[in-house]
Computed example of a mutant assay.
Amino acid sequence: MILPSRYELSAPLTAGGMGEIYKCTDTHLNREVILKVLKKGEEARRLLDEQKALLQIRSRHVVQLYDIIEIKEDGNTNQALILEFIDGDTLTPGCQSLDNEYLKTLWQIACGLSAIHASGIIHRDIKPSNIKIDSSGNLKILDFGLSRRHGEDAATVNAIGTPIFMAPELWKKSDVSFDNSIDVYAFAITALALKKDQRIPATLTAYPPGKIEPGELNEYLKGIPSDIIGLLEDCLSHDTQKRPHISEIEKTLNRHLLHNKHRALLVANGATYELNKDSTNVNVKIASLGEISINYDGYQFIVKSQSGQVTANNRNIANGEALPHCCVLTFGTGSSRRFITFDVSNPEVMP
């Protein structure tokens, strides 16, 4: 096999339906990479087009496509992909306890899928064996061998995929059009498959899968926040329009992972007030101009009560409303107004 001089072949890893995979060294950047040689034919050309779209994706939760090259072997010229080498293990069914780390795993998968869908790609084969975790704890979605562009080539004449992860609409005998909601369905099945007991409602393991009853997943996901369970049930709907966007799932998981991790600071009358998980209430009064009481519920900073004239960023706020994470509170009107800054730290979910 003759490669461009930049790459040095290390060893073969696997051979699959779409080609062979090798470990290589990128001598320009001194890093290990994966070389995927595509077999000739129409399917390889289609896959190459799909992979080019991945050049636009910049997500730490999606395997990166670095280069598209030509190689020579036995007098023939083939196309090949240079992909990110992930030094880590593949996710396996039953590898997760139902705890915060489980939510973080689902969040990372949802982040990767959000980036994929935002780039107009349908992955089409989301499952644990197509997700690896690197040495830094980052989850990476890989294997785009079945991927399609949304709206252009999203159709099939045969049921293609991994049976238990395939959405019910893919089991039709006639020509089937699909969209990225099939990845959302597979995401929910993956969530069930990853938990330690691997218990999944029997109706979902049928070919084709049946419907689950509202609330049925409560038994299988005890201890997980109810709104997340509800979203996963919606992901499994046979009505594709009722499946949530993966970005909604990502945001909901992010919200729970940041529970009780925010801090807010206010400075008034020379005093500093801090709201956090250990100090959840504050009451600020500025002379006779106005008074406001704020509560931190672990997710947001909620106005409990107020009197006088108090606005946030020059807008009236209602009791029960969440304050913006950074705003200016104004007490009073006209020339007698007083201002207080309300600043909230913005923690991030880290793998």
Rank of each mutant, 00 (worst) to 15 (best):
L3P: 04
P4Y: 08
E8W: 00
Y22Q: 07
L29T: 06
N30P: 03
R31T: 14
R31M: 12
R31W: 02
I34E: 13
I34M: 15
K36F: 12
K40H: 04
G41R: 05
E42C: 06
E43I: 11
E43L: 05
A44N: 10
L47H: 04
D49G: 09
D49A: 11
Q51D: 09
L54C: 13
I57L: 06
R58Q: 15
R60V: 02
L65G: 11
Y66G: 13
I68Y: 12
E70S: 10
E70I: 04
K72W: 11
Q79I: 03
A80D: 12
I82Q: 04
D89A: 14
T90I: 15
N100L: 10
T105P: 05
Q108H: 02
I109Y: 04
C111W: 03
L113E: 05
I116R: 01
H117F: 05
A118H: 06
A118I: 01
S119C: 12
G120F: 08
I121L: 15
R124E: 00
D125Q: 00
I126G: 01
S129Y: 15
S129Q: 14
K132E: 00
D134T: 08
N138Q: 04
L142M: 14
D143F: 02
F144I: 11
L146W: 04
R148Q: 00
R148P: 00
R148I: 05
H150C: 01
D153Q: 07
A154S: 10
T156F: 00
T156N: 08
V157N: 12
G161H: 03
T162W: 06
K173G: 15
S174Y: 05
I182H: 02
Y185Q: 05
Y185C: 06
Y185H: 12
A186C: 10
F187C: 06
A191G: 13
L192H: 09
Q198R: 15
L204Y: 05
P209S: 10
G210T: 08
G215T: 10
Y220I: 15
L221Y: 15
K222R: 15
G223F: 01
D227K: 09
I228A: 00
I229S: 08
L232K: 10
L232W: 13
T240L: 04
Q241M: 09
R243L: 01
N254M: 05
H259I: 10
L265W: 10
V267W: 08
G270N: 10
A271F: 11
S279R: 14
N281Q: 12
V282P: 00
N283M: 11
K285G: 03
S288Y: 12
L289P: 07
G290C: 01
E291W: 01
F301S: 03
V303N: 01
V303C: 02
V310W: 04
R315T: 14
G320P: 09
L323P: 08
T330N: 01
G332S: 13
T333Y: 04
S335L: 05
S335G: 02
S336R: 09
F342S: 14
F342H: 13
F342R: 13
